[in-house]
């Protein structure tokens, strides 16, 4: 079973003459444990693709399947609880880490667990364990403003992993980091993908980081124009 499956995924903004197709007929599958990048220039539709898979942006056409459950087929399926799915199945990592400034590192991770109905003590124990595993055991009670860029991004990763999601979606996770910290984050993501058996989909235009991915999709002007497999192969997509 794939962690992510999309089929002919299309997102059109506006109607009639003003309609803009942000993403057209995107189709791919990502297995659990895979680290996949979507690479493309600004405005190419990467983030629209990510938000559609992240259950934030309703697709106009096409199908989205997360961890075997179909969530969209020409729009969200009726009665689907998007918030619950985002809580339970998805983890998000952002370009600017998006930690809550008034919560400590520990509380930033705990909040994701408490939202998912874990008790306070369970949440604290799991958050402490996760941050310890990411070498942030000494930063538990620091506010985000006191953390370095790399440390803050690791806290954000811990928050994304807190509920053991099947899919982690990352929006430019290395954009705000220097090369060394960016590489460390990529190494960490790859390790986590394998250890947690989670599919990790990263949207980036940071070419410095492409070596670390298992597969790379190139997106241009709303279409997936190519797929590169770091184990060797290269595929040209002729879609749409």
């Amino acid at each position: 079973m794939y962690a992510i499956e999309i089929e002919k995924l299309t997102k059109v903004y506006g109607k009639g003459e003003t309609a803009v197709t942000a993403i057209a007929d995107a189709t791919f599958q990502i297995k659990p444990g895979e680290l996949v990048a979507i690479l493309g220039p600004s405005g190419s539709g990467k983030t629209t693709l990510l938000t559609a898979i992240g259950l934030i942006n309703e697709p106009t056409h096409g199908k989205v399947v997360i961890d075997g459950a179909t969530v969209a087929d020409g729009g969200w399926l009726p009665g689907i609880d998007l918030k619950r799915l985002r809580r339970e199945k998805l983890g998000f990592i952002f370009q600017a880490h998006n930690l809550i400034p008034f919560l400590t590192a520990l509380e930033n991770v705990m909040i994701a667990l408490e939202i998912n109905h874990l008790s306070r003590s369970e949440a604290k124990s799991r958050a402490t364990e996760l941050l310890g595993a990411l070498n942030l055991g000494h930063r538990l009670n620091n506010f985000p403003s006191a953390l370095s860029g790399g440390e803050a991004q690791r806290v954000a990763i811990a928050r994304a992993l807190a509920n053991k999601p099947k899919v982690i979606l990352a929006d430019e996770p290395t954009a705000a980091l220097d090369t060394e910290n960016g590489k460390n984050v990529m190494i960490l993501l790859k390790k986590l993908a394998l250890e947690n058996h989670s599919a990790i989909l990263v949207v980036t235009h940071d070419h410095r980081m492409v070596e670390g991915f298992d597969r790379i999709f190139h997106v241009d002007d709303g279409r997936i124009t190519g797929e590169k497999n770091n184990s060797g192969g290269s595929v040209n997509h002729e879609l749409g």
Binding site: G54, K83, R84, R86, F92, F94, I111, A112, N116, R159
Partner: peptide, 16 residues
């Protein structure tokens, strides 16, 4: 706004 958007993105209920 960013905090609220982040909370919504990670699945927070409106009541929170």
């Amino acid at each position: 706004i960013k905090v609220i958007a982040t909370l919504k993105l990670i699945g927070s209920q409106n009541r929170v």
